[in-house]
Design a binder for these strands. Structure first.
Lengths: 88, 88
DNA sequence: TTGATATATTCTTAAATAGTTATATGTTCA
DNA sequence: TGAACATATAACTATTTAAGAATATATCAA
């Protein structure tokens, strides 16, 4: 029960939803995500760490860049579900 | 985006998930929910108010009792989705 | 009415955490 | 090597909020 709640809590932050939206099509570097979301680099980095640790995002280092992408497709589906529900 | 996040945030509390679990089959009174969850009456009452205000629960008064039930079936489906995902 | 029961609300405290700033670590290239 | 760039982390502040305690409100029954 606690783990389900933790999962939802991670999706309960607008900034993290923005991040998910940014990487949902294809993996992006931290810098790309920073510019896409308009948040500070430190802030984005922390959110990314949380999402990756929870198994929602993948993390892949390439040179000096780090690519984050969707690992748990469920998270995206959940967002779409809620979005379509709210659209009604 | 903010409203999607708010929706998820509501599901991001173990106590509220317990409440949803308690009322997901049939509406229950506050007292029933209190005993089922083991929380205090004040605490349950506050969570119920939040869930009802968000349109996730219905609220129906009958005499001195108040029945809360599922209004937004999506919330239950989301919980089931995450639950089954975590079960893997 | 009075007392018992059911629910809601107010006030307070404690804990969690999002965001900022500054700095550290790591990588590439000249 | 050193400078520029990319990412992560640490320390701090401020905000949110869950929970508890006490009380208020409402309903029923004798």
């Amino acid at each position: 029960m606690e783990s389900i709640a933790r999962h939802f809590r991670l999706l309960g932050e607008p900034m993290r939803l923005k991040i998910l939206q940014t990487v949902c099509k294809t993996p992006r570097t931290v810098t790309e995500i920073v510019t896409a979301t308009g948040a500070t680099q430190a802030n984005v980095s922390k959110h990314l760490a949380l999402l990756a640790m929870a198994g929602i995002l993948t993390r892949e280092k390439d040179g000096q860049c780090v690519y984050y992408g969707i690992k748990d497709q469920l998270a995206v589906r959940l967002c779409e579900l809620v979005r379509s529900q709210l659209a009604e």
